[in-house]
Design a protein around this nucleic acid. Structure first.
Lengths: 229, 229
DNA sequence: ATATAGTGTGTAATTTTTACACTAAGTAAT
DNA sequence: ATTACTTAGTGTAAAAATTACACACTATAT
């Protein structure tokens, strides 16, 4: 590391683990740094918390700046603050995760002053990450694995209208194991948070599946009760 | 609030929700503040994170300073950082919880420069709390309710050797509902993390119950598998 | 000896979970 | 139009887990 770098005493930042799903793979958004320290390394997108922002607001702003997206389900999950985690001083960072569907019409457009490029990388082959970002990512993945069993976050990775097979696919990717088709359908429909639409999948070269939508109203009613997958 | 108070730009603190159990009630440790702001109010014990401390180390130090206790299961659970939460400036605070058994030989001895007194208060009748401490406490209680179902944290509230009835009592208090005695015993013993001792309860004026101990080794083996209560 | 208070135990009914395989429907190619 | 292909969509029986429920036992105190 360089020695001429500025030194800051105590800074508070937010780093985001943005999980994206393109219909096939689970990916996360990384940026290639263009500045020291860790110039040319891949890193999680993150930024400094503004002086008059609440934490959630700040996370939302950062997500917006990095992707142009807003209104995404996003949650704080852990604070990382080892004294040595940033070579320029004490930076305590709050980790947030978000789940995003990729592809389709409006492509995600990341822009960030200190990044050479941004890229959605499959979690199966991540590069070495700057700072302690590997640790932050690991804990984030662990978190959503746990959470997808109890809360309806899988829907965030899918388009508004989706098939049951697509939904099952998301669960299998996040949990890292195969699920039985019939049992999956039995269970997921028994929660009563899916609304069956009068529409079929389009553009496939085989029998088109029925489309469903997540029913927020019904879910709100369930609240308090735990969904267990 | 006063105007002559010093202003600090950006500070990082830790606040602890220390849950204590005396065999009857669930309590939390509060201090009565002796300084502005919120002079004479009750508040959660907390402190500033030191410059060279990791967060967990800092939490452990703070717990030690406030109670004389060490080696307690303790966990970070949320960061609170609304811009207006502290009248003197931007203070972002990390909340930790700990579970402690009260009473017995070595009494917990809280000491703290800015407190008039410290007191274990039953959660059923808490006073108004300073800052956003009510919010911090609420989220902490919610957290342990959820966690006690999946992880062996109930044992931390009990002496090393305990009876099944005492254990059931803890679950009932935290979950806020009655449990069936036989079903509780069936389930809790089926996890295989309790070691039955060749000892009986002493000093009761009725049939003495068998004592048990939490078996950390067996629990470590289970790890990964979820305990679900 | 008797009253008292909490300990410790089993079973049947119900619900939930698991394992498992074939027909139906639509598309594409010939 | 026939055929080949690919995924959609569906039920049941066995096993496991959960629930509801009541009484005899034991130690102590009087």
């Amino acid at each position: 590391m360089e020695q001429i770098l500025p030194h800051f005493d105590s800074v508070f930042s937010i780093d985001c683990v943005l999980f994206g799903f393109d219909g096939k793979e689970l990916k996360i958004l990384l940026i290639e740094r263009n500045e020291e320290p860790f110039k040319d390394w891949w890193a999680l997108p993150g930024n400094i918390v503004g002086h008059n922002e609440s934490l959630d607001q700040s996370a939302e702003r950062i997500l917006y700046e990095l992707t142009g997206l807003s209104g995404i389900y996003m949650e704080q999950y852990y604070a990382f603050g080892d004294p040595g985690r940033h070579p320029q001083g004490r930076v305590i960072t709050l980790a947030y995760y978000a789940l995003i569907r990729l592809g389709g019409e409006k492509e995600v457009v990341p822009r960030s002053s200190y990044a050479k490029q941004a890229n959605w990388m499959p979690i199966s082959k991540l590069p070495k990450l700057a700072f302690d970002h590997q640790k932050i990512y690991d804990k984030g993945l662990e978190k959503i694995k746990r959470r997808i069993k109890h809360q309806p976050i899988a829907f965030e990775l899918l388009p508004e209208k989706f098939t049951l097979t697509q939904l099952q696919h998301v669960y299998e990717l996040v949990l890292g194991k195969k699920l039985d088709k019939r049992n999956f359908r039995k269970k997921i429909t028994s929660f009563g948070v899916l609304k069956e639409l009068n529409e079929k999948q389009k553009g496939v070269s085989y029998r088109a599946a029925t489309l469903y939508r997540f029913d927020k109203r019904k879910y709100a009613k369930l609240f308090g009760k735990e969904i267990a997958f």
